[in-house]
Design a protein around this nucleic acid. Structure first.
Length: 425
RNA sequence: GGAGAGAUGGCCGAGUGGUCGAAGGCGCCCGCUUGCUAAGCGGGUGUACGCCCAAAAGGUGUACCGUGGGUUCAAAUCCCACUCUCUCCGCCA
């Protein structure tokens, strides 16, 4: 959420920044300023009248003769004043709700370093690591490799649940588990993150805190009787872990969290219909940081490097792109996507998204820190990134390390976790 | 699922209608004292949103004692609903 005061005081600056995202983003501001002005006027009058009522009420309490007509008259007067104030307060609450509801639907401002552009075609490539491998045979897609190796069963998953679900079996399941363990170990042991296992069902407040609600409810799986939502990413429970808190210790606070992720994938019909790329349920190791505002972009760089380390150790070629303003997610102010090379598609595909949210989520979720002893709390900056999406890592590993005979070479770093140097039928 | 108890400031804890943003203690900060340490003495120490001030400092107003509503001129205090925590019983991975 943007700071209402800042929006009101800098309307043109805010409008221009939002316009970089596209016309719809700027339109979200329509009608906001009058509501803010109305709220301010009502607040002022309400507080003023309540102050006068309080003073009068106190003098009534110290009245000597409580049976006198003056006492009765004054009391009657105060009752009427009180009723008037109550009516004003109702109007004020209405204005505040309206302002809040509208503000919750305004996306974050893109950072100045974010390139212009309407969609992913305008994303800026920052660097590339590794060389796409030159195959002396035709590389197969992961769904063919997985089926032939007997480690991936999409047909039976469809029987169980429907499209966009998968069953891993045998060495395929073991590979998934090895990847999870490997990623967590690297981040916890080598990068200094604290492991966190959160609930996979969260309430509306949590979803609002990170920005999935109120605008994107159709992308979530909802559990009706309890009004809970399956987490689309560990970002939600882990960021909201510190909601309504003032962090007193040193920053940054860093968590690494493995969770399943559940996404309804509304509106993605026809996209990535084959294979594991786009699933309703997948595993992810997520990195989350709470940082000082002045250091948040340095923290974004190091968080991105932490995610890259996984790809490097798994010997998977990738590139880093900065999302352009039009491609940026709702809550993010700047995002680096890590895109892994997929031989079967001869293209780079997203495998991690590392973002800084500035104070946008912190304001929604009320996450603050104390800069020093006795100093006033300030909003933290929140960041997160996939480190990595496990399912996409699994399929990238199959495709990139496949051999002519259809077996898979397990990269050195993963062998202790997988328990072998080769996956074959 | 059944029965009971509770929710007050960073923490502990007092407070059953007005003088309560809230006693007292702990912690923390500043100063004094002090060979060092410890102890002692004095003062200070919540958050949000307004207003005044060029700004900072400061001043000032309103709200907040789990959440929401109600009674009352006046609510931490009385009433109602809800949430959460704890204890016991039952069930259960």
């Amino acid at each position: 959420m943007l700071d209402a005061k800042f929006v009101v005081e800098n309307p043109e600056q805010v409008r221009q920044a939002l316009a970089r995202r596209g016309p719809a983003a700027a339109a979200a501001l329509e009608g906001l300023e009058p509501v803010a002005a109305r709220r301010r006027a009502l607040l002022r009058e309400t507080e003023d009248r309540r102050a006068r009522l309080k003073t009068a009420s106190k003098s009534l309490g110290s009245f000597k003769d409580k049976a006198s007509p003056e006492f009765a008259r004054l009391r009657e007067q105060l009752r009427a004043d009180g009723d008037g104030i109550k009516a004003l307060e109702a109007k004020l609450a209405e204005a505040e709700t309206e302002l809040e509801q509208q503000l919750l639907r305004v996306p974050n401002l893109p950072h100045a370093s974010v390139p212009d552009g309407a969609d992913s075609a305008a994303n800026r490539v920052e660097r590339t690591w590794g060389e796409p491998r030159a195959f002396d045979f035709e590389p197969q897609a992961h769904w063919d490799l997985g089926a032939k190796l007997g480690i991936l069963d999409l047909e039976r998953a469809a029987k169980l649940s429907g499209p966009r679900f998968a069953v891993l079996l045998g060495a395929g399941a073991r590979l998934e588990r090895a990847l999870i363990q490997f990623m967590l170990d690297v981040h916890v042991r080598d990068h200094g993150y604290t492991e966190l296992m959160p609930p996979y069902l969260v309430n509306r407040a949590s979803m609002t805190g990170t920005g999935q609600l109120p605008k994107f409810e159709e992308d979530l799986f909802h559990v009706a009787p309890q009004d809970l939502f399956l987490v689309p990413t560990a970002e939600v429970p882990v960021t909201n872990f510190h909601a309504d808190e003032v962090l007193e210790g040193p920053l940054p606070v860093k968590y690494a969290s493995f969770t399943p992720c559940f996404r309804a994938e509304a509106g993605s019909y026809g996209k990535d219909v084959r294979g594991l790329i786009r699933q309703h349920q997948f595993h992810k190791v997520e990195l989350v940081k709470f940082a000082e505002p002045e250091k948040s972009f340095d923290e974004l760089e190091s968080l991105t490097r932490d995610a890259e380390a996984i790809l490097q150790r798994l010997e998977l070629p990738y590139r880093v792109v900065t999302l352009c303003a039009g491609d940026l997610g709702f809550s993010a102010t700047k995002t680096y996507d890590l895109e892994v090379w997929l031989p079967s598609q001869r293209t780079y595909r997203e495998i991690s998204s590392c973002s800084s949210f500035g104070d946008f989520q912190a304001r929604r979720a009320k996450i603050r820190y104390r800069p020093g002893k006795g100093e006033k709390p300030r909003l933290v900056h929140t960041l997160n990134g996939s480190g990595l999406a496990v399912g996409r890592t699994w399929l990238a590993l199959l495709e990139n390390h496949q051999q002519a005979d259809g077996s898979i070479r397990i990269p050195e770093a993963l062998r202790p976790y997988f328990g072998g140097d080769r996956l074959s039928a």
